[in-house]
């Protein structure tokens, strides 16, 4: 346990250089390209007399390295600063949009695991059969479907042609999110308020985006599970179980699949970045008010502090996830030593 703690704190420390590297690149590139917050903010026809004054006010007239050091100093105080465009703290829009992205990501992940793992296990059991081949083909095809296109096709079928499901936003017109909003995770919020009508509405709005993300990512988990299952099916403990005369179903889905979870979990940590990328694209198709749209909007506005803030939050987020995966890994697999 002590070793684990030491390992984890090392991992956490390693996040810092990662953050610095990404931040430095974004910081410099954003300030080198044309356009700055002041001219983005001023109207297209406004006289430019306040530009210098405003730039001074925002500290944009200082040399880049000085701005950079100022920013790092600020960051070391765990302060992401204030937006240069809107009258708000950088954390305000992030705290509002991040839960939307996470909610979508997690439900998408559930769908992906729900399809990928059983299908992968089944394919492994029936290795080299037509079913196996079809499952693998499915895995390859969905992997190659652009997630935004999958979203559009689902919208076209279930949203427009059949008119069964809403195709945009997190809630419908008849439900006010401000009535229940607390954590920003609407599924949780509506349950906390025991508002069944709102919960149903939120859940219905999640179906298509979650399916879109989940189906396109299910391919990855399918192949992972299949590969690990194949290894496990040849391993000693499975042979032993068979030798003991356990039913084949129990051997496959009990022993082999159970052991395949650990590598799948590990991959999940690595794949989380992919998952987030997919979520961002799903957001654009479903007008999901999440981080992807926020990032784009703020880059266009040249809102330097907010863009930097978003990068920091994403970096922290993926680090925390992979850390969590490591912890769970260590807890469930006694063989893992640090």
């Amino acid at each position: 346990m002590k070793n684990l703690m030491r390992y984890l704190s090392m991992r956490l420390l390693l996040t810092i250089p990662m953050l610095l590297i990404l931040l430095t690149v974004v910081f410099i590139v954003m300030r080198v390209i044309p356009g700055d917050p002041v001219s983005a903010m001023l109207g297209d026809h406004a006289p430019v007399k306040f530009v210098a004054e405003k730039k001074h006010e925002l500290g944009l007239d200082k040399p880049i390295w000085e701005q950079y050091i100022d920013y790092l100093a600020q960051l070391s105080r765990f302060d992401l600063g204030r937006s240069m465009i809107l009258q708000e703290a950088v954390t305000a829009p992030i705290l509002e949009k991040l839960p939307a992205t996470i909610e979508l990501t997690l439900t998408g992940l559930l769908v992906a695991l729900g399809i990928g793992i059983p299908l992968g296990a089944w394919a492994a059991k029936n290795r080299r059969s037509v079913g196996d081949f079809t499952a693998r083909l499915y895995g390859n095809i969905v992997y190659c479907i652009p997630v935004f296109w999958m979203g559009l096709i689902l919208q076209m079928i279930f949203g427009v042609a059949f008119d069964w499901l809403p195709i945009a936003g997190r809630v419908g017109s008849r439900v006010m999110s401000s009535d229940f909003e607390q954590t920003g995770f609407y599924l949780v919020d509506t349950l906390l308020k025991a508002d069944l009508k709102a919960f149903t509405d939120v859940a219905i709005h999640l179906i298509l985006p979650a399916l879109t993300l989940g189906i396109t990512l299910s391919g990855i988990f399918l192949r992972l599970t299949r590969a690990n299952m194949l290894d496990n099916l040849k391993s000693d403990f499975v042979l032993a179980a068979r030798a003991r005369g356990l039913p084949e179903g129990k051997v496959v889905y009990g022993h082999a699949l159970g052991n395949a979870f650990v590598p799948v979990l590990t991959m999940l940590g690595l794949q989380f970045a992919v998952l987030l990328s997919g979520a961002i694209l799903t957001e654009t198709t479903f007008s999901w008010p999440g981080m992807g749209r926020l990032l784009l909007e703020r880059i266009y506005l040249r809102d330097y502090p907010t863009v930097q803030g978003i990068i920091v939050i994403f970096a922290l987020f993926v680090s925390v996830i992979s850390l969590l995966v490591d912890i769970i890994h260590a807890l469930i697999d006694p063989r893992v030593k640090y």
Binding site: M18, I21, L270, L281, F314, S319
Partner: peptide, 8 residues
């Protein structure tokens, strides 16, 4: 770079 979401 690798662990950061590439698309973002």
């Amino acid at each position: 770079v690798y662990s950061f979401p590439g698309l973002i």
